[in-house]
Amino acid sequence: MKPFREQNYYELLDVRPNAEKEVLAKAYEAAKRAFAGDALASYSLFDPGERQALLARLAEAWRTLSDPALRVRYDEDVLGIRSSVGPPAEGAVPGPRPMAFSYADLPATGVTGSALRSRREAIGVPLQEIALNTRISIAYLQFIEEDHEKGLPHEAYLRGYLTQYARAIGLDPHTVADGYLRHLRILRSGKR
């Protein structure tokens, strides 16, 4: 094991050199948390300067490895290995999963079950995966996407589910929860 200034990008992120993109994304998120200023595991070790240098290295690692072309070049030039990921195929650009918040395509007034579902499908996250990660019953997740008023739990619980669901598809949790609950109230008042 080497200190961070000597680690390669994979060692920095604690992943294998053949790690898939999802694993890299998770590892980067975990590393950012582990080396944040107030993180339990590291606050007593790094001083602010070192921490900043480490976080910058981590960001650099993520920027390089999350870009298929840059990653291939890094693997070959720096590590001297043939990339296990392979260069991106011509024409078929799967596009990286948006990890950061990108709410622009979903206005606050338009938070509906179907809008959320299309967002989820666009980034290719299966509902099962969200259910597994959030421990929310898949039935509730389906009810959310189907705007199934009767099946949905009480608002107090629903808000919690919505925030977790929003995080899972890279949206701002509060905007989604507020928007969806407003949408639900409009639905209900329309039926009365």
Binding site: F4, Q7, A34
Partner: peptide
């Protein structure tokens, strides 16, 4: 539970100890 992973990573990055 993830603390162990973060501590392992911290020890490597800071001390250089595995």
């Amino acid at each position: 539970a993830a603390l162990g992973l973060s501590m392992r990573s911290s020890c490597s990055k800071y001390f250089g100890i595995h």
